[in-house]
Design a protein around this nucleic acid. Sequence first.
DNA 1: GTCTATAAGAAGATAGAC
DNA 2: GTCTATCTTCTTATAGAC
Lengths: 207, 207
Amino acid sequence: MDTKKKILDAALTLFSEKGYANVFVAEIAEKVGIRAPSLYKHYKSKRMIFDAILEEMKRSYDGQAAMLRIDGNDPAADAGKFAAVSEDGLVEMGVSLFRFFLHDGYTQKFRKMLTVEQFHDPELAALFTRQYVDDALSYQSGLFAMLCANGVLKGEDPQIMALQFHAPIYMLLTMCDREPEREAELTVLLEQHIRQFAKMYKGDENR
Amino acid sequence: MDTKKKILDAALTLFSEKGYANVFVAEIAEKVGIRAPSLYKHYKSKRMIFDAILEEMKRSYDGQAAMLRIDGNDPAADAGKFAAVSEDGLVEMGVSLFRFFLHDGYTQKFRKMLTVEQFHDPELAALFTRQYVDDALSYQSGLFAMLCANGVLKGEDPQIMALQFHAPIYMLLTMCDREPEREAELTVLLEQHIRQFAKMYKGDENR
DNA sequence: GTCTATAAGAAGATAGAC
DNA sequence: GTCTATCTTCTTATAGAC
């Protein structure tokens, strides 16, 4: 594996655990298996490593967004899948997506790094909100609008539906980031949330 | 004002904006209006300042919890108020509570500080989850259980109701922490969320 | 309790050999 | 590209006068 890439991986891991300022260049180097001065042959400075991680992450965001969007980028294409899917299917899909975001090393580390660095820079703050809130809500709004138009769900404001669907899932995800030992317990809540959400917006009175 | 208290305030402000490691003792001192060495007459070390903030916060948590709980500590006592309250009243109460948490200097700074320091220490992680999730959900669960028992709302799982009520509000709050200029726009979403939540769990079909 | 001066040490970065 | 040795700067913290 490329040393340059190894450095980014090591740095991302450390930055996500301790934050940029608490990580020493020597630590990154040690994780890679070299000495600190050697690292400067690959990156001009510590800050350049951080910036490179950010750049890599922006590039790979389309890939992550594709996961989030299940299909790629078109809500209309996904609506059909959802329409046919059972409540159990919705739960299974939600849980497996949750598990991916929770356990995928790159995804989790980047989420944690952005979390602890979000107030250092308005650009990071905007990136955070865009990536973990606005884009997700925007996509899900489209999806729910479609499902309501199809009569699969009943709801008058898809944007609020998306907020009410997404926010609990994101909250459970960040709880697992902080206390991984609670994953099993919180996955149960996740499942119950999705089930109740589905029931509610189907107009089911038995709740 | 007591210098010792001034130091805590200055440090909390700086820690919440830049994180513990990025704040220098000299910065804190400057904000207080003294020189760095003078500060050591009040606190033995930089870490002791951080610890003192944490202690102060734990002490004042009951006060904050009282705000969150509207009444103090007994959901049963609050349920009556809610039962009598209109949808508009619920919105007004939710919005003003939201504004308090967003604008109260101490509350906001402590939330931001805990956000950026949460992964440094399992104790901080547990404190974060307890304060911003578990305790809030636990209280709201009791409240919703009461309202369901009274027939004011219809729902079979108060814990999930609490999650679906609280998570969107908390998400909007953290968005305002990151991008204060979006407050107006997000307050509209907050209001729509509360209205739709109220309608849904009243069994209203017109949604 | 506050100051100036300074010690002590940490951490980012460079020089130059191999 | 990696190493050892080293420079430089920054930062916490202490000493001691006032």
